[in-house]
Computed example of a mutant assay.
Amino acid sequence: MRDEAAAPRTQAQRTAATRAKVLDATITSLVELGYAKTTTQEVNRRAEVSRGALLHHFPTRESLVVAAVGHLVDRRMSEILGRPRTGDEDISVIFEVFDGPLFDAALELWVAARTDEHLRQAMVPLEQKVSDALITGSAELFGPRYSPAQIALSIELARGLAVSRILRSPDDDRALVDELLTVWKAMVADA
């Protein structure tokens, strides 16, 4: 009897593995080097795939970076929604979404999209996907506890705090976020 682990991978499995390597390499490059230095050549080098394989999946840099952030959004939402539920989840979960490599990579693209029309056009569907995922995920986590307006305002507050984090030390950031989150939770609870 053949060992399942030793069975050759299917074409679909090889394609998915190549795609994942490329997307992970893109995120790492965006976070470490920024958008300007995240070229298809740099991603190709990091992913250790053939140039043809990279271009087959992602014919343009815009399609590559947008797909990478979309991939990370899916992964991050799965992590958050896949956690064991305690029933005590509150609005602070939204603030977690805007922390770490997902936010750093997305921020790189937002800033670049301000002056790059091709990237901006590619980002619009991604931003809709992010918004939809946040709203759907929040509804799943919180049920009717928060109104759509409270969730939307929480998302905007979390995003703004994450942007301004760039200019604060980690300790100052944690203290500020903790303080503002406490105030925000009280305001939402009183609404």
Results as ranks from 00 to 15, higher is better:
Leu72Ala: 08
Asp172Met: 04
Ile94Ser: 01
Met1Asn: 09
Phe58Met: 03
Asp74Pro: 03
Ala149Lys: 13
His57Thr: 01
Ala6Ile: 01
Asp99Leu: 01
Ala36Cys: 07
Glu179Val: 02
His56Arg: 12
Arg145Asn: 03
Leu119Asn: 10
Thr182His: 13
Lys21Gly: 06
Arg159Ile: 00
Asp171Leu: 12
Arg75Gly: 04
Leu102Thr: 05
Ile135Arg: 15
Gln13Pro: 01
Thr10Glu: 06
Glu32Asp: 14
Glu48Asp: 10
Ile166Asp: 04
Leu64Glu: 02
Thr15Asp: 15
Phe98Thr: 01
Val66Asp: 14
Val22Lys: 06
Glu62Leu: 03
Pro144Thr: 14
Thr115Gly: 03
Arg165Tyr: 05
Ile155Arg: 07
Arg120Lys: 13
Met187Gly: 15
Thr39His: 12
Ala6Arg: 13
Val31Asp: 06
Val183Asp: 06
Arg165Asn: 12
Ala133Val: 03
Ala16Gln: 15
Gly100Pro: 04
Glu42Pro: 04
Gly137Leu: 07
Gly160Arg: 10
Ser78His: 08
Ala158Asn: 07
Asp190Pro: 01
Ala6Asn: 07
Val73Thr: 14
Ala6Tyr: 06
Leu167Phe: 10
Gly70Val: 02
Ala47Phe: 06
Asp88Ser: 14
Trp110Glu: 00
Ala53Phe: 05
Pro170His: 11
His56Pro: 00
Trp184Cys: 01
Arg165Ser: 13
Pro59His: 14
Leu23Met: 06
Gln128Phe: 06
Thr182Leu: 09
Ala122Arg: 09
Ile27Ala: 05
Ala16Asn: 14
Ala105Ser: 11
Val130Asn: 03
Lys37Gln: 13
Glu62Phe: 05
Asp178Arg: 14
Thr40Val: 05
Ala17Thr: 11
Glu79Met: 10
Gly70Arg: 12
Gly87Phe: 11
Leu72Arg: 15
Thr86Val: 02
Ser138Thr: 07
Thr18Val: 04
Leu107Gln: 11
Ala175Gly: 02
Gln121His: 13
Thr28Ile: 01
Ala152Gln: 11
Ala7Trp: 04
Leu81Tyr: 09
Ser29His: 05
Ala122Val: 00
Gly143Val: 03
Glu4Gly: 01
Gly137Val: 06
Lys129Ala: 04
Glu79Tyr: 10
Thr182Tyr: 10
Val183Leu: 13
Ala6Pro: 00
Gly52Leu: 02
Leu161Val: 02
Ala152Phe: 04
Phe98Ala: 01
Arg75Trp: 09
Ser169Thr: 15
Glu4Ser: 11
